[in-house]
Amino acid sequence: MENTTFTPEESLLLITKTIEETKERFKENGHILVFWGTLIFIVFGSQLILSLLEFYKYTMYPVYLFPIGGIYMLYIWIKDKKQNKPKTIIGNILGNLGWVVGMNLMIMGFIFSGKLGEAMAPVFLILFALFIIVCGLTIKFKPLTIGGVLLNLIALGSFFLDRDYHGFSMMLGALVGLIIPGLLLNIARRKAYV
């Protein structure tokens, strides 16, 4: 790029183009949403299958996939830091919110599951819904907001369900609120670069 002066029209065009391109580059991608959605789907799907097969003793084991997911997130975070990616205010807010919600979910799941009892799954889903709705509204991506609202409704509906069916709620919530919006976000992002 040369350091020349130019007309007001060219100037305004350059500003608009630069800001749009920079913002586009840092649009959140759906990879992390799809990852957590799939993990939740697998964990609760496996628990359901183990229960159906009457292997009740082993139903807790799939839950240990969550800390592994946490380690993967830590790896992503370190990788991003090393790449010297520019910091965006929105990215920082969403990243911090993700960590706070994630840590609370882990603590609730591993320490307070007994105290929460039947409310465990709905509360778990409400926290996820909160994160998804905030993400959707912040990055102005409607499928994510809609997915979050549906997830919130599933969560509230789960209060009326028997605990035995909460696994289904979790799987449906993961599909509607995380996997599908995440895939749509990836498609939208790819289209923006074509």
Binding site: L14, I15, I19, T22, F26, P86, K87, T88, I89
Partner: peptide
């Protein structure tokens, strides 16, 4: 313009 769209680069 770039710095207007990010917090730090």
């Amino acid at each position: 313009s770039i710095l207007m769209s990010v917090d730090e680069a």
